[in-house]
Design a protein around this nucleic acid. Structure first.
Lengths: 69, 69
DNA sequence: TAAAACCCGAAGTTAAACTTCTCTACGATT
DNA sequence: AATCGTAGAGAAGTTTAACTTCGGGTTTTA
């Protein structure tokens, strides 16, 4: 379990919660299952390109802000 | 070909060149082929977690600086 | 005391990261 | 003008890990 992954997950969770979204709701918006969102936030895996693009769009966050850790 | 991918590639190239490394040399350092580094810089693909970790380490750059675009 | 939200492990599927090959292009050097 | 280093680019094949699904358990909140 990498440090980078964990930090990214924590940051993603912060941004998601600041938008008032549940993992399930975010999953719907970016075409991922609730579990996959959870896995990402807990550092289990890394988003692929298409997923990251959707995250940035849906959460209205810029790359440098999502990777600010 | 996504915008995100292209911008990341351009930024990666900037950082690589600022360190005085060729694509081949960087590839050696992060266990990728010269072609793969080239593909990434031209927006053909996105790094997986392990690759990104190596890039950050080898180029001595922080996530928010590599994603500053 | 539910129910909503989240955590967590394991095993299977699938998309795309990555490789390999081939050719082209261009500037610098000899 | 011929070789060398570096990089752009397309196509087809391999492999890894992102993602799914299932089964539970725990925490939070109404």
């Amino acid at each position: 379990m990498s440090d980078l992954n964990k930090k990214f997950g924590q940051r993603l969770k912060e941004v998601r919660e600041s938008r008032g979204l549940s993992q399930e709701k975010l999953g719907d918006l970016i075409d991922l299952t609730e579990d996959s969102v959870g896995n990402m936030e807990r550092g289990k895996h890394w988003p692929r390109l298409k997923t990251l693009e959707k995250i940035l769009k849906v959460l209205k966050v810029k790359p440098k802000d999502l990777f600010d850790f």
